[in-house]
């Protein structure tokens, strides 16, 4: 794959017009992430559904390269309304996609990843790997925050 192929239309589209690119007031989870080595910075916001089981809304802000921005933008469109567990496994599948070739990956992961596969080419650019995964690492941490919050809510529920 050539570099130009890496910067496909869909990546340039999401980098140029990132989706859900706005700060969230009173999020249920907020994670600031940065790659100090290259200067990518982003903040990921999550809102959980009322029952605490699903991700209702995801937004992000920040200043980052095209690969990082596109990856974050795609993330926000993909995990909207997903059950928390599914968002987690999607993150796992995405990060796996960047490590191992498609033919070796778990069955069904291609369907699950869908248009996230446009970022598969990053695998050939080891120096850019962190750009593609930054938002997903932020998601992993945000999910932990959601779960902790959920756990405390549950505790309140059983008390009642």
């Amino acid at each position: 794959m050539s570099t130009e192929e890496l910067y496909q239309e869909i990546i340039m589209d999401h980098a140029g017009k990132p989706r859900n690119f706005v700060e969230m007031a009173e999020p249920d989870a907020k994670v600031e992430a940065e790659n100090p080595m290259c200067g990518d910075e982003l903040t990921l916001f999550l809102r959980a559904s009322a029952d605490g089981l699903r991700i209702e809304k995801t937004q992000f802000t920040g200043q980052a390269c095209a690969i990082c921005t596109a990856s974050a933008s795609l993330l926000t469109t993909k995990i909207k309304s997903l059950p928390i567990g599914e968002a987690e496994s999607l993150s796992q599948a995405f990060q796996e996609m960047l490590k191992i070739p498609a033919e070796e990956s778990a069955e069904g992961s291609a369907e699950r990843l869908g248009n996230l596969q446009v970022l598969e080419g990053v695998r050939k650019f080891p120096m850019r790997m962190k750009c593609a995964t930054l938002a997903w690492h932020a998601l992993d941490h945000a999910v932990v925050q959601l779960r902790e919050k959920g756990a405390s809510e549950k505790l309140t529920f059983s008390d009642g």
Binding site: L6, C38, Q63, C65, A66, I67, M127
Partner: peptide, 21 residues
């Protein structure tokens, strides 16, 4: 355009630049 994109794309044109802090 972020410096990292500039450097990756310049590399595809054969140019070694440095990008970062």
């Amino acid at each position: 355009i972020h410096a990292h994109d500039v450097v990756t794309l310049a590399d595809s044109h054969g140019i070694a630049l440095r990008g970062g802090h």
